[in-house]
């Protein structure tokens, strides 16, 4: 079954008091897929993930996760899910090996010692096995957390901003590993703020203020946003970007090195807006909108609509 759905939920809703943190979200994730979950801070990503693994009770919603009912089957789901929290949540006063051993015991692994050794070796943590987790750097902590999440051989991994505060090399290694695991049939739901990471996901969803605004592959997400973007190079781009931002029809003007990306939802309005600036000093070119352009656009429009 190549199209087996690992997560298939709809209507997922969570309220804290009067505030709706997750509002009627439907999500389908296929087996072996790396699914990116994007959105600004406080948009409800973490809350949604916590509902999936039974850490929070959903106020509404239905569906299945790993074949079990997402509302009533949380104890069964827990055993097959690896959840990596946003903040390092293993014991800092335990060593790497002790932490892994504890996790292995909690999942009641039969061949515990071997599982721990394999996990330590597989992640290249052998030299550091007796080091206290609290003494590890961000990158090593993240490796340890991932190792701990994998030790009971889960079928689904929920990773909440797994690469925050990790250097680029470690980040790349991490993503290579994720792709390896996905190729072997493991499914991932990953939240991130990094655009390069978003682009490495098979599919994405963008969530803002608890609402799922758009989902699909990277290309689909960009197309659906119907955003027009021009790039411009020339002198004194700073001044230009300030003036462009004050012009109606221009939604954003963002510097990318020596280049400026100017975007707007209305193609014709944008063309009219930039017309006065199309002089010899500047070189204008229409480009395909980047994921980042789209997300900033989504963030601004959802902010504007929620402010109304």
């Amino acid at each position: 079954m190549p199209d087996e759905l690992v997560i298939d939920v709809r209507g997922m809703t969570k309220r804290f008091g009067r505030r709706t943190v997750v509002n009627d979200i439907a999500l389908q994730v296929r087996k072996g897929e790396i699914y990116g979950f994007l959105g600004p801070n406080g948009s409800g990503k973490t809350t949604f993930i916590r509902m999936l693994c039974g850490l929070l009770k959903a106020d509404a919603g239905s569906g299945t996760c790993l074949g079990s009912d997402v509302i009533t089957g949380s104890e069964t789901i827990k055993r097959q899910v690896g959840y990596m929290t946003q903040r390092f949540s293993f014991y800092e006063d335990l060593s790497i090996a002790e932490n892994l051993d504890f996790v292995a015991r909690m999942y009641g692994l039969k061949d515990r010692r071997n599982a721990v050794e394999r996990s330590i070796e597989g992640l290249g943590l052998k030299d550091r096995r007796d080091q206290l987790a609290g003494e590890l750097s961000g990158g090593w902590k993240q490796r340890m957390a991932l190792a701990a999440c994998l030790i009971h051989e889960p079928r689904l991994l929920l990773l909440d901003e797994p690469t925050a505060g990790v250097d680029p090399k470690a980040r790349r290694d991490f993503w290579d590993q994720i792709h390896d695991l996905a190729a072997r049939g493991l499914t991932f739901l990953i939240t991130t703020h990094y655009m390069d990471e978003a682009e490495r996901c098979h599919r994405l969803a963008y969530i803002s203020n608890g609402n799922l605004l758009v989902h699909g592959t990277v290309a689909e997400v960009i197309d659906r946003a119907r955003l027009t973007t021009w790039s411009v190079t020339g002198r004194d781009l700073n001044d230009l970007s300030r003036r462009l931002r004050e012009t109606p029809g221009v939604e954003q003007a963002v510097a990318f090195g020596t280049m400026l990306h100017v975007s707007g939802a209305d193609e014709r309005a944008l063309e009219q807006a930039i017309a006065p600036f199309r002089m010899d000093d500047y070189e204008w070119k229409q480009v395909r909108s980047s994921l980042e352009d789209v997300f900033i656009h989504l963030m601004q429009t959802s902010k504007a609509s929620s402010a109304e």
């Binding site: 009912d69 009533t72 089957g73 949380s74 104890e75 069964t76 055993r79 014991y91 006063d93 335990l94 002790e98 051993d101 504890f102 015991r105 909690m106 009641g108």
Partner: peptide
């Protein structure tokens, strides 16, 4: 909650070991 795991002495031992180390 369905399929709630039954009390496991092995898990209890895991907790105890961890608490001792801490």
């Amino acid at each position: 909650m369905s399929a709630r795991p039954t009390f496991s002495p092995a898990r209890l031992r895991g907790m105890i070991v961890k608490e001792f180390i801490q």
